[in-house]
Amino acid sequence: MSHSEVVAQLEDGMTIGIGGWGSRRKPMSLVAEICRSDVKDLTVVTWGGPDLGLLCAYGKVAKAVYAFASMDSIPLEPHFRAARQSGAIETMEVGEGMFVMGLMAAGQRLPFLPTRAGMGSDVMKINPELRTVTSPYDDGETFVAMPPLRCDVGLIHMNRADERGTGQFLGPDMYFDDMIAMASDRCFMSAEKIVPTEALLEEGSIHTLRINRIFIDGVVEAPRGAHFTECPPDYERDEAFQAEYAKTGSDAEAWDRFRSTYLDVGSHEEYLAAVDARSDEGSAT
């Protein structure tokens, strides 16, 4: 599939789940394609990083579902902050453990999963829709009944994939990408490189084949598709670019220059060309 063919599957008001973690192995080329599209009013379920920030900056987000938003080396996500502080988005902010349970419940088609995470904290206050459940056994302990974080569409980025939808991570951490895929009615996967199925085990051990094609509905080849987030071992985070992005959070003019230079272009290839031109000439903004 192409980037635009994936984004053509999205409709206004949909819930989308995004893989990766913070500023790590995010499907950024697909996120940028959403920014270039007319899709709006999305609910975004994410281990938040610049994916969430960019979608906020483009006004695509009606509601964010998250436990945090961070860019790792830069602790706070500037455009997510701006969206929160201007009251532009609805939120469902939960503890990380609750987020895991929500993905798990969605993948298992359950109405909830019990967890201690959240009990006693203000997540119960700021999310009044959350309910508790009491153990039916003699202990009688009460838990948060974490509802499923079911998504219409999941988007993940892998190091390698085959045409049919088997995905392979080669870095140190898989994060929760398989759970995002299982929590989603349909999941689309971008990959640094599409290889023949018989070549997958030349890339990494059997333990790295963690995305099963029964959960994947389309594959996009996207070299540097996670840029500027990290995608080891293929590449590290582009810290200079991330720092440039971070500065645009509180500076409207810088943001306009940033988006017109890098994002409001025709394709992922043109984005990469603009990024590389920057490397040659220094900051475009």
Binding site: F68, R81, G95
Partner: peptide, 24 residues
């Protein structure tokens, strides 16, 4: 965050793992 949760004065990280950590 600092301020009113609905529209905070300063958005910080988010609750992260703190709710689960502290009761586990």
């Amino acid at each position: 965050c600092i301020g009113d949760y609905a529209q905070p004065k300063v958005q910080l990280l988010g609750v992260r793992g703190a709710p689960g950590n502290t009761v586990n």
